[in-house]
Design a protein around this nucleic acid. Sequence first.
DNA 1: ATCGACTTGTTTGTACACAAACAGAATTCT
DNA 2: AGAATTCTGTTTGTGTACAAACAAGTCGAT
Lengths: 149, 149
Amino acid sequence: MTRPQALRQAEEEGGDYRLDAQIGFLLRKANQRHLTIFAAQISELTPRQFAALAKLLELGPLSQNRLGRATAMDAATIKGVIGRLLARDLVITAADPSDRRRLTVSLTRSGRQLIEESLLHARRISETTLEPLTPGEARQLLALIEKLT
Amino acid sequence: MTRPQALRQAEEEGGDYRLDAQIGFLLRKANQRHLTIFAAQISELTPRQFAALAKLLELGPLSQNRLGRATAMDAATIKGVIGRLLARDLVITAADPSDRRRLTVSLTRSGRQLIEESLLHARRISETTLEPLTPGEARQLLALIEKLT
DNA sequence: ATCGACTTGTTTGTACACAAACAGAATTCT
DNA sequence: AGAATTCTGTTTGTGTACAAACAAGTCGAT
């Protein structure tokens, strides 16, 4: 489906593509900034590990794949994350008797403690990330990004 | 299990924390969607490789670190990216006589050709990413994210 | 002229991210 | 029931990201 107009237009405007003004580049930079802020506030957990523990606290024990879906990580990624949480005794896994494919992941006592503690800082992370914006702008931004997904 | 505790703690904090509504989580998901769209349109290059080549086209030969800064990648990351572009003969590197620490990176003929061709699709990638929004909303979003960085 | 601070690039180690291919279990459809 | 399909988890391989520590080159201040 080549659109001659689009192609010609692109060629005519060939020089005016500015990487720094593209949505993808801006999303990446915003994300980088957020990760820096996160790491400064919660040094014991990465954002993905935090997300996994937070979802377990919110929803209770979940199968590994379900947890991955709830935190937007694919099967291979969530496996790595859970593996690292397991190694630190923050979660435990157990076979699901009702479905032998499933691996049920649950918080341990120390996992629960760490995530509850971390949640106290989590709000501040979001606030700091949005700090350059007015409250109204922040709400707008959240709505627009949500619409994007 | 002990969900009441979590709920009580959340209430003390002055509202409930929903991971899915946090700026960091939304940024990550938006980014993921963009990467999928990118990969579908430009399969020969990753977004970072594209960014590096695009900046070289825009600015001409640059030292490795400068190129990293121009594309928001740190020294270790840009080294990996350049290494892979080198292996595919899309760029070449040369010592800078005026500053012997520097490694000047330039486009090769095929690198220039590939990035010029890719740029023809790049605009569509940004358009597709922003498709769920009206043009006005898209402009707003870009402005807000830019303000965030 | 040289000392100290900074810059450039490299290496190592940890942590995602996702595609692809696979095995085993559960479900659906006939 | 049996076959086809779908789902769950694992493994492998490639490509970012970034912290930390390091060597070597450059430069400003003394």
